[in-house]
Amino acid sequence: MPSKKISLTINGEAVEADVEARMLLIHFLREQLNITGPHIGCETSHCGACTVDLDGKSVKACTIFAVQADGGELLTVEGLANGAELHPLQEGFFQCHGLQCSFCTPGMLTRAYRLLQDNPNPSDEEIRMGLSGNLCRCTGYQNIVKAVRYAADKINQAEGAN
């Protein structure tokens, strides 16, 4: 099997690995590295459960080969918290009941993280547009929108205070 050595940064840690060319990024993370936060929900790039952040962009890891991430900087849900300190989004999802079965949550959080990086003060409509590549079957989205709003407000307040 044709394989390739890749090196990348995942959640701040340098990783080197041999991967088969056809290995999808999601399987590389989940099966080779045991980073099981990102999930597989549809396999056709519709549901967003596999969303990770690659070089400052949200992408669907089910439709990218691991070799394409060579040299990249990758963030998954596991890298959102700062040690014991939750990211405001994680806190927002907890406070606003933005999750139920939670299968979508890692992708949702990772996507929302990038959304707030790109647009720190989104309207509800912008949040809905921004999360439109992530399906949730449990929450009806309303509390997810609230949770992202909560996090945006918290981040903006903290920055306003600085």
Partner: peptide
Amino acid sequence: KRKEDARFIRGKGNYVD
């Protein structure tokens, strides 16, 4: 607030796959 969320918001749920 939900007790199970502690693991879920950290991506530490344990699903069959």
